[in-house]
Write a protein that binds this DNA or RNA. Sequence first.
DNA 1: TTGTAGGCGTTATCAC
DNA 2: GTGATAACGCCTACAA
Lengths: 340, 340
Amino acid sequence: MAGPVTLSDVAREAGVSLATASRAFNGSANRTVRADLREKVHAAARKLRYLPDANAQAMARGRTTSVGLVVHDIADPYFSSIARGVTRAADRAGLQVILASTEQDPSREAAIVELLHRQRARAIVIAGGRLADEALTEALREALAEYRESGGSVAVIGQAVLGVDAVEVQNEAGARALADALVDRGYRDVAVLGGPASHLTARDRRDGFLAGLAARGVTVPADRVVAGDFTHEGGERAMSELLASGARPELVFAVNDVMALGALRAARDAGLDVPRDVAVAGFDDIATLRDVVPGLTTVRIPLEDVGVMATELALGEAADEPRALPVPTEVVLRESTPQR
Amino acid sequence: MAGPVTLSDVAREAGVSLATASRAFNGSANRTVRADLREKVHAAARKLRYLPDANAQAMARGRTTSVGLVVHDIADPYFSSIARGVTRAADRAGLQVILASTEQDPSREAAIVELLHRQRARAIVIAGGRLADEALTEALREALAEYRESGGSVAVIGQAVLGVDAVEVQNEAGARALADALVDRGYRDVAVLGGPASHLTARDRRDGFLAGLAARGVTVPADRVVAGDFTHEGGERAMSELLASGARPELVFAVNDVMALGALRAARDAGLDVPRDVAVAGFDDIATLRDVVPGLTTVRIPLEDVGVMATELALGEAADEPRALPVPTEVVLRESTPQR
DNA sequence: TTGTAGGCGTTATCAC
DNA sequence: GTGATAACGCCTACAA
């Protein structure tokens, strides 16, 4: 039973003191430690296959090398794309990513922040958008406040309502531009799968879209705006409801791509062809969907970049005032919304 | 400057010793500590908003609460689906997930295992399949051996060639069954986008597929089996090559869904309609693709379950012999390969 | 049941 | 430049 080899083992093997052994590795500051000794220590480390204990280092140094990432569902392409950016940025900074998922339950966010706080993560990136739920928001805000007081830094992707640095995707503007482009393509009779009523991102997209239509003189009856979960199933249900109500709009805008997929499914199940019988548009421009037929009209968000930005924001110099980084979006017209 | 509140602070506030304070929290063993004191400690902890330092606990206890997950690209739906299972299983076990990505570079796996080793992760789940590269495999094997000697446990998703527990997706059988089903649908003139030559999973699928065809008397000329990366771009390139060579097969089988998407793109760029001009099949049954039109014929892997299984395998009792859990697959026929 | 004290593996502050 | 030695925050025999 060898047991893990420690720095003491290495020091002994190299015939130096613990202190010298330690300095041989991280004494990059005033780089003391004589060259021959340093080499001896390194040789011993190699021989003994020494791997420093990151936890012990964290204790001694007073800071860890990990950043926390909070998502609602890592299997959702929206979050996994962001996660890619986060891991990339963290990797560049020499940090580890602790992945935490609420499993679609926003009320778990505060507890997860606490968890990450216990882990003493250096920074936390919260990937999910905010809800218009003051109780939840307040709980999260509190958890974040304590975390930050203890030295952690935070960036959120979404609305800057938590008093921390934020990467703000321009949902409203993007949706507005999409509406404009779709009116150009001849659509007038439209319905909206608007997501959860309290979901700020969903709301921004929905309202932006409606505003964009209104600006062109197109109004959407209230019963053509249906709520639902921000998920595939949510889109499917909302679309089914819509169709069951007898509505046969020319165009359906779902506030994200995953919902648009659900809508696609519901349309097919109802015997409708997309885009012949009904056109469909989404939001996000999920990579996996870019080459399907018919291509899904959507609004592109540079998700990976967003992940990188959020991570760098959280890792960077702490500013006095919370910063908000705007992220422009781009309308992508594809075959799911042909000219009519 | 408050500084993080420690257990000592809590003890002082509660008027008890450090030891008692500690026991008030985790003294579940012989649950000593008098009720009133315990409550006092908890009250003090709440008041001071004490959050135990997981790193310190890890040091003291000799084990962390984290499991490592190694993927090639978390944005790839294959890996993000597995990651979902891993986070879920870890969560159930009260553990954190450290997400590490090779960023598509298999040669980084060994270094990542070392990183996770330094973090003293309790267990490591390696999600990417193996390569027929003895040098790489050996490096990884060594890193894993040291990790396990120091008490860590490992599970790999893919081929059981590392001497550790493995979750083995039945790629060969699945591909064979797919071939069979497609011959039933009338396909005879087929091409295969076979992925990287040394990629064991790709190879199993390719060979299984070819074997399945052969069993039905269908042979595929060597020049109809083209290699390429295991990615979207790889599929796109391979398909382009194939088409550029003048080939116009009835059916193209890509060894994973993401490649099939790339192939779809290449087909479109070449002015071909899928499935009218060429049918396409993939492997994995990526969730995001389930509702696109035309539906992609593929072989379903219960990816989330695979993630759960691998995690539980790694977390469970260490067996004497490495275990191999087979995971059955299921052929899913959709519109991308209509009857002909 | 409670407190004292030693230890977990490193880093960092001192003298030497 | 090098080596004791005290932290770091917590857990856990051991003693009381």
